[in-house]
């Protein structure tokens, strides 16, 4: 009995293929696509999206959705700048940023598991709430209008500086390392197995003794913490926290997960899917912009991609179901004859 392909693995191969194809295409068309500078920029952008997507993938594999990640990035970013203003070092801010994001995630998890609201409504609403929180804490002048406020802490700013003279940012390194760790967690620990189990069939998982609420809450905390981490790095790079921080990020993060092979509804995909999806989207963005394509083309392509990917999943499920039924009928016939 050979291991059969499921839609998630097929999609992962498609994404890898697309990433390679894009690399080839862009490097042929543009001499500086493979330059150190461009690659480090590409990986910085991919990491910003990818960190959020990796955290989100945990919730999505568990069958949920987190639409509040954009809001978490916004609120955490602004809170972090405040924290550095009161004199905390960059590393302290980094840790507190992760904790703040995790706390937001905990709030989501609490509302979903204890107050029994659906994931969709909870995180949509809490997303508004977090964006609003960002606005509440945003820097304003005496007239109440928003203003730019630069980060002063040097250790904080150093988080957003290139590691090597030619480029390459810490956030990219952190992203790659965390994606690998998350892959190990998802496949080699109880937590990961249970997450797959509840995403695949919550009722069966519960009957087998899995503490569904606990796993869900941990998923939301992970999602929030990863978003918080991304917020710290982005504010450090941008040297400020604006209220447009994280805007529409939830959409891009879902797109990254779905394109990379995390199946909406749960049970399939992992951090590597999110990694590949984010890399692909960032590459597309980078390349298209390089060739003077306007942002709207990128938007349209991203929006269409998400639809194509999910339509692929739903059609694949239908076809493979039919095929399975047919196969079973055949095997049943050989058995009886």
């Amino acid at each position: 009995m050979k291991k059969k392909l499921n839609s998630s693995t097929i999609r992962r191969f498609i994404t890898i293929g697309l990433v390679i194809a894009l690399t080839a295409l862009f490097s042929l068309l543009s001499s500086n696509f493979l330059s150190m500078y461009n690659l480090s920029e590409l990986f910085r952008n991919a990491a910003y999206l990818g960190l959020i997507a990796c955290g989100l993938s945990v919730v999505m594999v568990g069958g949920g959705i987190d639409l509040s990640v954009g809001g978490i990035v916004c609120a955490t970013g602004i809170i972090c700048v405040h924290l550095s203003d009161i004199g905390l070092s960059g590393y302290m801010v980094l840790i507190l940023g992760i904790i703040t994001g995790g706390a937001f995630g905990l709030l989501n998890g609490f509302i979903v598991t204890k107050l029994k609201l659906t994931e969709f409504v909870t995180t949509l609403a809490s997303g508004f709430l977090f964006f609003g929180l960002g606005l509440v804490f945003a820097y304003r002048d005496d007239h109440g209008t928003l203003m730019a406020h630069s980060i002063k802490s040097n250790t904080y700013l150093s988080l957003g500086q290139p590691l090597l003279p030619g480029g390459f940012y810490l956030i990219s390194l952190v992203w790659v390392v965390l994606a690998i760790i998350l892959w190990v967690v998802m496949h080699k620990t109880e937590l990961g197995l249970y997450t797959f189990a509840i995403g695949s069939d919550e009722k069966s998982a519960r009957m087998s003794g899995v503490n569904v609420a606990k796993i869900k809450v941990i998923g939301f905390i992970m999602s929030g913490a990863f978003s918080g981490l991304a917020a710290v790095f982005v504010t450090a790079y941008e040297r400020t926290a604006s209220t447009s921080l994280g805007n529409m990020r939830e959409f891009l993060a879902i797109a990254a997960c779905v394109v990379g092979g995390v199946v909406l509804g749960g049970g399939k995909g992992d951090a590597v899917s999110a990694f590949l999806g984010a890399l692909f989207l960032a590459m597309l963005d980078n390349g298209l912009r390089k060739f003077g394509m306007d942002s709207y083309v990128v938007y349209m392509i991203q929006g269409s991609l998400i639809l194509v990917a999910i339509a692929f999943d739903s059609q694949f499920a239908k076809i493979s179901y039919r095929r399975r039924v047919k196969e079973q009928r055949l095997s049943a016939q050989t058995l009886t004859s």
Partner: peptide
């Protein structure tokens, strides 16, 4: 998309809103 392809409505409409945003910019030139 929602009924025939059985994609959750919020994903469909979120995704199309992105496409539409692009289409507006295309029409108006931003």
């Amino acid at each position: 998309l929602i009924v025939k392809l059985a994609i959750p409505s919020f994903v469909v409409t979120l995704a199309t809103s992105y496409v539409i945003y692009g289409a507006i910019t295309l029409l108006s030139g931003g």
